[in-house]
Simulated assay, not measured.
Amino acid sequence: MERRRSGPDVDNLTSSTSSRAENIVQPELDWRSPPPTFTLISGRPLRIAISRWRVRRRERVEVASDTDDDCHVLSIALRRTRKELFIGGKSVWLGGVRDEMLLTGPKRGVWRATVEGGCDFLRVFLPQTLIAECYAEAFGGGPSDTISMFGVLPVTDLRLRQLGQTFKALDGYDPIAGPCFADSLGLAVGLRLVELACGAEEALANGKLARPQITRVVSYIEDNLAQALCLLELSEVAGLSRVQFVRQFKQATGQPPHAYILQRRIERAKALLKNSDSTIVGVALDLGFCNQNHFARVFSKTVGMTPGRWRSLQS
């Protein structure tokens, strides 16, 4: 078995996005193997893993893996490439178009791939725990055994393609709101896969968050704005499943959780910039940003100007 690692053949993410503390999209060091689970400051891991696999060499490169896993995997071609996938020695997929997506079920036996002219793939690993959670949400109970919904399937479903495209925005996304964003996307993909494979309608509660639940969740977010929050934490505060919480939170606030968290962090930053003598770097660190430059990028993207410019206009 040949495995290509980082070096002249397979490239890591760029230095600006390779830090585990800053980016939930991790370099895929072993082909078709999930990267280490991204763990929040609170110690809670993300339910999904996201990797980026890049080959820069122009000549033909071969990779292989014989390690079994229980993940469903969505692979997205970020550039035009020529890649052929073999399972048990049989060719099962030949890709070459940018934004083409491939869905594979749990891996068993020897998988091998050849790449000609380099490639760049974003890969989303959906573990069995997440698929089982989505299955239970759709059918009212957990499965009795490992769920294997697909072998190798090019993605043609429009809704699944749209969700896959959204995953590309997570590379370099804000590390505080990013985990909540990734959690939400993972759940949406898992539910869609269960719908497509099992013919299930989404069995979701139509109720709304009661006022005490809203108050508890909002207060929890306000008290922990400087930390990376995940859906599991917030859904536990609300006393709902993760799927129910995402839907009902958006009904109650008009925004998905990750967008609400980011908005509240920016509003808190504005208050500190306007009403305190804190330096910009002090505000950035108080709100959990990695550094002043990271804070400035997020603030500028949301507000339309730098923190320093915004502060000067207030005075």
Rank of each mutant, 00 (worst) to 15 (best):
Q26H: 11
Q26D: 05
E28P: 07
R32D: 14
P34C: 06
P36K: 06
P36L: 15
T37H: 11
T37L: 13
T37A: 13
F38W: 15
F38C: 08
I41W: 12
S42N: 14
S42H: 10
S42P: 14
R44M: 08
P45V: 13
I48D: 11
I48R: 05
I48Q: 06
I50R: 10
S51A: 15
S51R: 10
R52K: 14
R52W: 04
W53S: 11
W53K: 08
W53H: 12
R54P: 14
R54E: 07
R54N: 10
R54M: 07
V55K: 08
V55S: 13
V55D: 13
R57I: 09
R58N: 12
R58C: 09
E59C: 05
E59I: 03
R60S: 10
R60Y: 10
R60W: 03
V61Y: 01
E62D: 10
E62I: 15
E62Q: 11
E62P: 02
V63R: 01
V63M: 08
D66Y: 11
D66W: 02
D68C: 05
D68K: 03
D69G: 14
D69H: 14
D69I: 04
D70A: 11
C71L: 13
C71N: 15
C71M: 12
H72F: 09
V73Y: 04
V73F: 04
A77G: 11
L78K: 10
R79G: 13
R80G: 15
T81H: 12
R82Q: 02
R82P: 00
R82I: 08
K83P: 01
K83R: 14
K83H: 12
E84N: 04
E84L: 06
F86T: 12
F86P: 06
F86C: 08
I87C: 07
I87R: 14
I87L: 14
G88C: 03
G88Q: 11
G89I: 02
G89C: 08
K90S: 12
K90R: 15
K90F: 12
S91A: 10
S91R: 13
W93C: 13
G95E: 12
G96K: 00
V97I: 11
R98M: 09
R98N: 10
D99Q: 04
D99N: 14
D99F: 10
E100H: 00
M101A: 05
M101K: 01
L102H: 04
L102Q: 05
T104V: 10
T104M: 11
P106R: 06
K107E: 06
R108Q: 04
R108M: 00
V110P: 01
V110I: 08
V110A: 04
W111Y: 06
W111C: 00
W111M: 01
W111Q: 12
A113R: 02
T114K: 05
T114G: 08
V115F: 03
E116W: 00
G117K: 00
G117T: 06
G117V: 03
G117F: 02
G117P: 03
G118Q: 01
G118W: 00
G118T: 01
C119A: 15
D120N: 07
D120C: 12
F121G: 13
F121I: 10
F121C: 09
L122G: 10
R123C: 09
R123L: 08
R123W: 00
